[in-house]
């Protein structure tokens, strides 16, 4: 049969690439994500920012913190495309280095609070009873503080630094995730497959991590994406108030701190406009991605 010329001819014509590519959940989600134009634009812009972050050392024309009093407060020119600040540092270079800190703070802080949130939400939702009651009252207490008040208070305790900003956002932001995970767990633990897993002798640990958590993942992922956007804004706000990242470390919010004085605000717009615009673009991108993810992950729409 192998040397039948007709069959070989047919064999050649069959396009195996279609059949070989299985339709996975991931490919469906990706396909639906791609339909949201804004989300794709957001993803591309965000990816290019990541490249800037990684290669900041090579892209930046000057080191970020070389103090040069001879050339301070220069308006944009050929040597300094975006001018220099009050200490003579090149604004463009500081923007490029600042990208790394501004964007990574958001990521680290969210990883931290998603972990705390999942832990508290999972324990609360899975075990229920008095554990649930205590943990949820505690969550209610934390939610009652407007986040900025809480963040400022913790910032006053820990003092300004990059790592403290990550810690502050991480320690105060977990409430939404905790409530989300708890809600999902309450629903999921009544499912039949949970009962089946228990029937097969799985212990609580195994049920939580291999059966319940993956199924509660979608809303957490969306919340985390939006959370990164919020975290970048919180970092910027804190640094702007002078409670976050402090010189010589550079973040976009910290660069805007100078604009608190009216003379900088009115006479040196090149100092505070670019970082402000960049924060807005970065946050906008992430919100677009989050919105696209929410639509793509919505199980009601999966066919």
């Amino acid at each position: 049969m192998g040397n039948n010329p007709v069959l070989e001819e047919i064999e050649k014509k069959i396009d195996y690439t279609v059949a070989k590519k299985p339709i996975t959940l991931r490919s469906i989600i990706w396909k639906r994500f791609k339909k949201n134009k804004l989300a794709v634009v957001g993803l591309i812009l965000r990816a290019s920012l990541v490249i800037v972050e990684i290669f900041s050392k090579f892209i930046a024309p000057y080191p970020a913190t070389t103090v040069d009093f001879a050339n301070k407060k220069l308006p944009p020119s050929k040597e300094h495309i975006l001018g220099t600040d009050e200490l003579g540092c090149d604004v463009l270079s500081r923007l490029i280095y600042g990208a790394r800190i501004s964007l990574s703070i958001g990521l680290v802080a969210v990883c931290l609070y998603v972990s705390i949130g999942i832990l508290i939400g999972a324990i609360s939702g899975f075990f229920g009873g008095w554990i649930d009651a205590i943990l949820m009252r505690f969550t209610d207490v934390i939610i009652s503080f407007p986040w900025l008040v809480l963040v400022i208070l913790v910032a006053a305790i820990l003092g300004p630094s990059i790592y403290n900003v990550m810690l502050i956002i991480g320690l105060t932001g977990w409430t939404t995730v905790a409530r989300l995970v708890r809600g999902e767990f309450l629903k999921l633990k009544e499912m039949e497959y949970t009962l089946a897993a228990r029937g097969l002798g799985a212990n609580n640990f195994r049920i939580i991590f291999t059966h319940l958590l993956p199924n509660a993942f979608a809303p957490v992922l969306v919340a985390a994406t939006m959370g990164v956007a919020d975290a970048i804004i919180i970092e910027a706000a804190l640094s702007f108030l002078g409670l976050g990242v402090a010189f010589p470390d550079t973040s976009w919010g910290q660069m805007m701190h100078a604009a608190q004085s009216l003379s900088v605000l009115s006479r040196m717009p090149w100092l505070w406009l670019p970082p402000g615009i960049l924060i807005s673009i970065a946050v906008l991108c992430i919100n677009f991605i989050g919105d696209g993810l929410r639509d793509a992950l919505d199980p009601k729409l999966i066919r």
Partner: peptide, 8 residues
């Protein structure tokens, strides 16, 4: 409204 930092 969600994305622009209020202080900016």
């Amino acid at each position: 409204g969600m994305s622009l930092p209020i202080f900016f």
